[in-house]
Design a protein around this nucleic acid. Structure first.
Lengths: 203, 203
DNA sequence: CGGTTTCTGGACTTGCAGGTCCATTTTTGC
DNA sequence: GCAAAAATGGACCTGCAAGTCCAGAAACCG
């Protein structure tokens, strides 16, 4: 019963989400008014509330989900194939490239702080994103352990957790300082550290 | 000429900042109205605009500065004395303890995303905080290098940048997931990694 | 086709939070 | 103690952005 959308309606809905996402990325969550979304997507207020009966709340939630999915998609196919050191470096390069291009515009930053508190659902979206992200990294590490490229005694989950945190912090620092250095340092040092434990099995 | 504050006035101003900070920590930036601050600090609207002629903007800026300073103060005296491994671990424990207690309430998270964009000054405050923080860590690493406890060939700045990023990300993940695991993993693994390079000078 | 549903546009309402103003009280400095 | 300056309280104004409503156009389905 959640379905009562014409083909045209579905297109409009998608256009609204995409447009709102772009607007938010560009100017920040709290700077975007529904009017801006309307103007930017060529829609009317009636449409907005037709597709998002919960108003801004619901729209932001949809945008958050959209952006969260995009974050992971942008890392493919590298993220799901961390099966060799060149693959790891390719992933590293993709991340750097992506966030360098993105610059100060983070779609989820504001959503975490702002929507995160009011909408309980937004919290879930971010948590889900982080969980999926970390899972992919963990699998990458496990694979490298299976091929003997990483110390098998290493706690893959813990290492992935640390790496994920480093990435998040690196992006955060990119947002506040405008420099990519932190993200680079995290990725390079962490990958180096993973490689270091390969041959030297001595503990 | 910036000075025209009575002793009483200064106290009131401080009370407003502290109260607003508490309120923001508790409920998030965008959920706090000036009225809330008034109620919570026992002040009137006239006072608010008397001490902060720029209105909410100026108040948030003052709060941000206050909180930024607090973040570093909370880590003292450990942060400025990272001169032995026990000292590093004490710092680690302090961080864990502090953020565990703080839980989901981050004073600067919202300020980064929200005020960060509108107030150009807020950006500077956050950047300044990060810079001071990283500098302290760098000095700690350098000291350990001088005593031979850390590989002297290590790029201390880069390592500090990575660690800082990890901490920020760990806190971010604490905010979104409610779990301290990421922060713990970052601190433990990074410190372990620093120790690992001590004796083995072979590259 | 024709009835029904969905889609669209935009005028209107509403509430509220930031900001203004000034009259009164307190503090200060001489 | 007394003028001047700062501190305080709170009524008032204002703009704006979310949300409501409904009437007309377009799309769907038999």
């Amino acid at each position: 019963m959640t379905r009562a959308l014409t083909r045209k309606g579905e297109a409009t809905r998608a256009r609204i989400v995409a447009g709102a996402a772009a607007e938010i990325r560009e100017r920040g969550v709290d700077e975007v008014r529904l009017e801006d979304v309307m103007a930017h997507t060529g829609t009317s207020k009636g449409q907005l509330f037709h597709y998002f009966p919960d108003g801004k709340e619901g729209l932001l939630l949809a945008v958050a989900q959209h952006e969260a999915d995009q974050v992971l998609l942008d890392q493919e196919p590298m993220l799901s194939n961390l099966t060799s050191w060149p693959a790891w470096l390719a992933w590293r390069d993709r991340l750097i490239e992506r966030y360098l291009a993105q610059g100060v515009k983070c779609p989820l930053n504001g959503l975490l702080g702002q929507t995160g508190r009011r909408a309980p659902g937004a919290q879930a979206i971010v948590t889900g994103l982080m969980w999926r992200w970390q899972k992919a990294i963990t699998e990458g590490i496990r694979h490298m352990q299976s091929t003997g490229d990483v110390d098998p005694d290493l706690d893959a989950d813990r290492a992935a957790a640390a790496l994920l945190a480093g990435i998040q912090g690196g992006v955060l620092l990119l947002l506040s300082t405008g420099k990519i250095d932190h993200l680079e340092a995290v990725l390079d040092l962490t990958i180096d550290s993973l490689r270091a434990g390969a041959r030297t099995g001595g503990s």
